Simulated scan of single mutants.
Amino acid sequence: MNVPAYGLWSLVIINSLVFIIFAFSFTKPNSPRDWRSFGAFSAFIVALFTEMYGFPLTIYLLSGWLQSRFPQLDIFSHESGHLWHTLLGWEGNPHLDPLHILSNVLIVVGFILIASAWRILYAAQQRHQLAVNGLYARVRHPQYDGFVLIMLGFLLQWPTILTLLMFPVLVWMYTRLALQEDREMHHEFGEDYLRYAVRTPVFIPHLRKKAQRG
């Protein structure tokens, strides 16, 4: 008896809720701006798992081209949903290919960044202080780095037309949100935040301090 590859709507709901609840628990959106960003991330997650387990819209739209290029391929099997694996002509279990392994690493690192950053931020907020230790000593917005890594990981694992289009929009939204938070922190902490911002990049850590010590 063949196990169906799609139409597994219970898995769509369960997986979507896990990621959305996780995101909500660490972001706790308050302002309309926060809710828009959270809503966009939630839409990305729902779109992803809908195609992964529910209805493979991307595979359906590309079915004619895929069938002509890969005539021996069962394009509606679950393995074929790993499009990078298919398009690169790799064989074997797609869950063990380099991109899938890298995607898992990115997703796990993203989770760790979000959880670790939240603990530091929460402790600083309780003391009404700037979060400048741990991950916040390397970048000003490690939580947003974590969300971007999770989305990038899923794009490497299971790309879809919709999520590929949504990804740059979400990166843009997180960038705007980070810059707005920078302005709010400057207003609240003044020169202390300016000094912190001068020595700490927004998203991408640099090796300047290590280079100076060397």
Rank of each mutant, 00 (worst) to 15 (best):
T163K: 06
P56Y: 13
R140Y: 07
F55R: 09
Y53I: 01
D34V: 01
M1G: 08
R36C: 12
H187Y: 01
F154Q: 14
F26H: 05
V3K: 03
G146F: 05
S103Y: 10
E51W: 08
S77V: 04
P168N: 11
D97G: 04
H206K: 15
S77E: 06
H128I: 01
S10V: 14
L170I: 15
R33A: 13
T27S: 12
L48S: 03
P168W: 11
R140G: 05
I101H: 03
A124Y: 04
Q129W: 04
Q67G: 03
S16D: 03
F70P: 03
G134T: 11
A5L: 01
L106S: 15
G214H: 09
A131S: 14
F147W: 14
W35H: 14
L177I: 01
T163I: 11
I120Y: 08
W35V: 00
V169T: 06
E51P: 10
L165D: 03
V108F: 12
V132T: 15
Y122M: 06
A40C: 06
R176W: 07
T86P: 00
V171T: 09
L83K: 08
P29N: 04
S10G: 12
S116I: 02
A197P: 00
D182R: 03
F147L: 12
H206Q: 13
M173F: 06
D192G: 04
R213F: 02
Q157R: 12
L106F: 15
A40K: 01
I120W: 01
D145G: 13
L48C: 04
L8S: 08
M173Y: 02
L165Y: 03
L156Q: 09
A131C: 08
Y174D: 00
T86H: 07
G153E: 08
T200I: 11
R33C: 05
P4N: 04
P205W: 15
L11T: 05
L57W: 15
G7E: 10
F38C: 08
L152Y: 09
F55V: 13
L83G: 07
S25Y: 03
Q129F: 06
I21P: 01
V108E: 01
F41T: 05
G7V: 07
D182L: 07
M151C: 14
G39V: 05
L155I: 13
V198S: 09
R183N: 02
A197M: 00
H187S: 07
N2P: 08
L102M: 15
A47Y: 09
I101A: 02
N93A: 08
I59F: 00
L48Y: 12
A117G: 12
L62I: 05
R138E: 11
F44N: 06
R33P: 01
R199K: 12
E91N: 13
T50Y: 12
F154L: 10
I21K: 05
S80H: 02
S80F: 03
I120S: 07
T175S: 02
